[in-house]
Amino acid sequence: MSKTTDKALNLMRHLPRVCLANIRDNPGSGKKRSRGRAQHGGDYHGAGNKGSGQRQNFMRLGYETGNNPFYLRFPWEPYYRGHHLRRQYPPLSMLDLQKLIDTNRIDTSKPIDLVAIMNTGLYRLFPDQRQFGVQLTDEGADIFCAKINLEVQWANELVIAAVEKAGGVISTAYYDPHSLQAMVNVKKFFERGVPIPRRMMPPPDAMEYYSDPSKRGYLADPEKISEERLVLAQKFGYSLPKIEDDPNYEMLVEKKDPRQIFYGLHPGWIVNLKDKVILKPQDEELLRYYAS
């Protein structure tokens, strides 16, 4: 036991019974009415008398007292056009990922996707703010040595090389905002009692990325991906570990369907957490919808 806790509890044994009549907050913890300082007893709040000091009407940020302000001198910045509409991918570094694996927050014996990362409670994603998933950044790529089946939304060449050098598999996959909303809080989504949505295809401007074998896109041809794995190994100068001989081969090649959000669960199913049952649609119309 802590020495101080011991002391305090021993003191308690010799004091009268703690009851509603003899408790109080720490002295000085309450809020004082005014600051009570100087000439005016706090009623001027330190702002003084008259002028911009009192009225707080300071010049606006960037105002240059009559000059054409710097921020208005160049009125057109086309490289920012539509930046508020672009897809965002909040970063997660490889060092962070390795730390999550080291502290057992992520189970490497199963494929790792956005759901596994969100379930740690240490990564935040807001699909309603145009955030479209994890970007794995290369900080800590040199120490990364976990053999995993990883699925992220954005990764650069170095990250892909670091994962594959460690004997793992990486793929980049697109999720539409509705699917992401289901993934960020799985428990809350199941409690809503709505069918698992089907995943949408990437928008036209993202199609190229997600069908590029060198980016390990989930829509790329698997044979071309295995070619690209070799090409990348030669470029960075490491020998590619053979995943065919790996004891965890089954886990390493497990992939989601392009329409699927959760491993092992199909779109259209409804999960009932209370009765622990899964409802599967039987209707022809629904089956056709979710299969397409």
Partner: peptide, 9 residues
């Protein structure tokens, strides 16, 4: 059901 429990936090 195992695949449901696998994705629950």
């Amino acid at each position: 059901w195992n695949s449901v429990e696998r994705i629950l936090p």
